[in-house]
Every structure is written in C-alpha cells, then in structure tokens.
Amino acid sequence: MNRLISLRKTALTVATLAAFGAAATAHAQIKVGVSISTTGPAASLGIPEKNTVSLFPAEIAGQKVQYIVLDDASDATQAVKNARKLVSEDKVDLLIGSSITPTSLAMLEVAAETETPMITIAGAARIVEPMDAKRRWVFKTTQHDGQMAAAITQHMSNNGVKTMGFIGFSDAYGEGWWGEVEKVAPARKIKVVANERFARTDTSVTGQVLKMVSANPDAILIAGSGTPAALPQKALRERGYKGKIYQTHGVANSDFLRVCAADCEGTFLPAGPMLVVNQLPDTNPVKKSALTYVNKYNGAFKKESLSTFGGHAWDAAMLLQEAAKTAVPKAKPGTKEFRAALRDSLEGIKNLPASHGIFNMSPTNHQGLDQRSQVMVRIEKGNWKYVP
C-alpha cells in the first residue's frame, strides 16, 4: 500500500513538473500588445496599421511572437483600458500604439508605471520629449511635428509666404503643432495672423474659417490628421480662399484624398519617403528599405489602403526585431528583466533602415530620425507628387 502511494506521489510530481515546464515553455514566447484606432475619427490611420500588424514576423531572435491587437476607438480612456489589460492580463513584453497623440500620451502613463517598453506610432514630439523617468520607457517611429514644421515653414519661405494662418485640432496634436510653429515661423520671418482650433468630431468649422479668410494670410496650415483634416480645407475653398494650403504628415493616406477630393488640389505637405517611394531617385538612402515594406503590403492588401501610417507600424516591428537580438540573450521573455533589457536595446539601436527613415536612438533621443525621414509632397489630380 505504501509503495502504491509512493508511486502515485512520484507520478503526480512528474506530471506537475511537466505541466510547469510546458507552461514555462509556452510563456517563453515574446508577447506584443498593440492598441490602435481602427474605429472612431482616427480609423483611416488605424486600419492600415492593423493590416500591417498581420505582416509582422512570427519569429524574432529565435523566439515565437504573439501579437494581441485591440481597438481603442480613437479614445484616450479606452487606450488606457487596453494598455492595462495587455500588461496585467496578457503579460505583454512590449506595447505598440496608439495611432494618435492623445491616446499615446494616455498609454504612456501605463507603460511607465508598469515598466513596460512602448513604441508609439503617433506624431507629437511631446510623447518622447523632454526625456524623463516616464518617457524613458517610450520610443517613437513617426517624424516629430517639429521636424515637419521646419520643413513646411522653409517651403513657405522659399515660395514667398510672409503671413500664415493656423488651424489645428483642439487636442494634444494641434497644440503640439502650434508650439512648433510658434518657434519656427518667426525664424523664417513669417507672421501668424490667425490661430484657430477645431475638434476631430466637428461637422462645421464655419466660424473659424470666416476668421481665417478675413485675415487673408498668404498661406494656411491645417494641423490635423486623417479624414477630419479635410473639413477646414473644404470650408476654406468653399469660402473662396485662394492662398496656399499646407497639411501635416497626418493626412498621408488615400482616405484623406477621397474625402477632400478636388478641394485638396495643390496642397503641400511633408511626408515620409515611403509615400512617394517610386518617385524618389535611387540615391535616396531610404528608398530600398521603404520599398521592402511597400511591396510586402501591396502583395497582401489593396494598394489603395497603403499609407504612411501602416509604415509607422511596420517600423515599430523593425525596431522590436533589432532590439530583440540583444535582449533575448540577456533575459527570458515574460519577465521584468526581459522588459528592461528590451528597453535598453531599443535605446541602443543605430543605423537601422526602415520605411520612414534611418533610426539612431540614444538615451536622450527615443525617436532617432533625422531629415532623411521627410520629403515634400504636392497633391496633384488626386495623387501624391514628390517635390524635389
């Protein structure tokens, strides 16, 4: 009888250890939590990003990777809920998201609190600047609004613009852009004669546009993203505004062209090289790596859905892939040590070519892109035209 009990205990111990070993092996995979805006005002950004996630590598640095994708509906509160679920329930090693600045700023708090590295695919520099204890956990794949504001005002100056109007989103994206314009416009000897705001969900901007038209600036910059940025542009044209109109890199997708239609003819904007990759000279340092993403995306989805926003998501995967090479040998996925090693490895990335530029990270620079990450583009007959 005692021998039977002993055998049962031994069998139970072996089974328990086997189960524990299987669980440990299963958890050894890298887990990535993705929160993006596939519905709501930023859906035109989030949908190509979600498409792109399906193209992410299934294995990185010898480890299988699981991607858990949630929709934050373009809402900051939902983005926080998503981030907390991904970290506390799904035990992810990395967060990617979100599609827009307000939701990314909200996720930042969760990333810092839980010491989980995060790669944002939103636009504002304030997500990673100034560097502090919270932002040390966050990295960014998009061009800073400051870089793009410099490109826009330089183009304005080169084309005789002396006065400008500004109308931006009434949230962190618009305010971030205004902060950058306020810095660079005076240096180009451009006077801002009108400054207005509108919400992403607004259906009319008549009052703001009337003030803009009354001020009659040489050019107007619309600091919005996705299809909502078409609203003030269409209203300006309806009110007879004849000056130059500039948009930000936040509108670089076909949905914006569709909604804005003929009212966008002649509009200028800075964008990542991949938007016009086939028009770039072969000497462009980003052309080869941008084509890698473009060809892969077009092979899986309709070309009309290709956008720079999907490229930002792709670049997040590129950063993860590069960082994992040095993080995996240091610690086991699913642990606090691995998250810390991944953060450190992201910070040390150098000369990584991706779809929007070449990344060089550092402890004080968690974006890592330089002016090779932008080109000027003009909208002509419903298409993007590279402006050398």
Results as ranks from 00 to 15, higher is better:
T326K: 02
A230T: 12
D145C: 12
K325E: 00
D344I: 09
R343S: 10
V161P: 02
Q247P: 12
A58P: 10
A185T: 11
T292V: 06
I30P: 14
E175R: 11
G46Q: 00
A341W: 07
Y297C: 06
F198R: 04
E238N: 01
D315H: 06
Q78C: 09
P363M: 10
K303V: 05
A24F: 08
A172S: 15
L291G: 03
R372K: 06
A262V: 08
W137H: 03
K91D: 07
R136S: 15
K189H: 05
Q154D: 09
G33V: 02
N295R: 14
M156E: 05
W177C: 09
S225Y: 15
G62L: 08
V328L: 12
L70S: 13
S225E: 15
E380I: 12
N51I: 09
R258K: 11
P186T: 03
V251M: 08
G62T: 08
A317G: 07
G250A: 12
Y241C: 06
A11R: 07
N158W: 03
I245R: 14
N360E: 12
I152S: 09
L275F: 11
Q66R: 11
R372Q: 04
D93I: 08
S225A: 15
L269P: 02
A58L: 11
S204V: 14
R135C: 01
T203E: 11
R237A: 00
M118N: 13
Y173C: 07
L291K: 02
S289T: 02
G266I: 03
K242H: 07
A24I: 07
A124G: 06
Q233W: 05
F139A: 00
R197H: 14
D171M: 11
S225K: 12
E347C: 03
S362Q: 06
S362M: 06
H356M: 13
L17V: 06
G250Q: 13
K336G: 12
T142S: 10
L320K: 11
P228M: 15
A252Y: 02
T292R: 04
C260W: 11
E380M: 10
P117D: 07
K336R: 15
Q63E: 10
L55M: 08
K385Y: 01
P353C: 11
F301P: 04
A323Q: 01
A28P: 01
G33E: 01
A19L: 07
E265I: 08
V181E: 04
L306E: 05
V193N: 14
A61Q: 02
L369W: 04
F169H: 07
D171E: 10
T292W: 03
E347V: 01
G168F: 05
T267K: 01
S98E: 09
A124F: 04
T163N: 14
S355A: 15
P285F: 02
I121P: 09
K296L: 12
Q78F: 09
P285S: 04
I349F: 02
A15S: 10
M156R: 04
N159E: 01
E380K: 13
T201A: 03
I190E: 09
G266R: 03
G226F: 03
D93E: 11
I121T: 14
V377D: 00
E380P: 10
V276D: 00
G40V: 02
K296N: 10
K50S: 05
G174C: 13
L231R: 06
A172N: 15
K287H: 05
G243L: 04
V294T: 04
G207W: 12
G348V: 13
D132F: 00
A58T: 12
E337K: 04
N278A: 14
Q66Y: 08
N159R: 00
A172V: 13
A271K: 02
P281R: 14
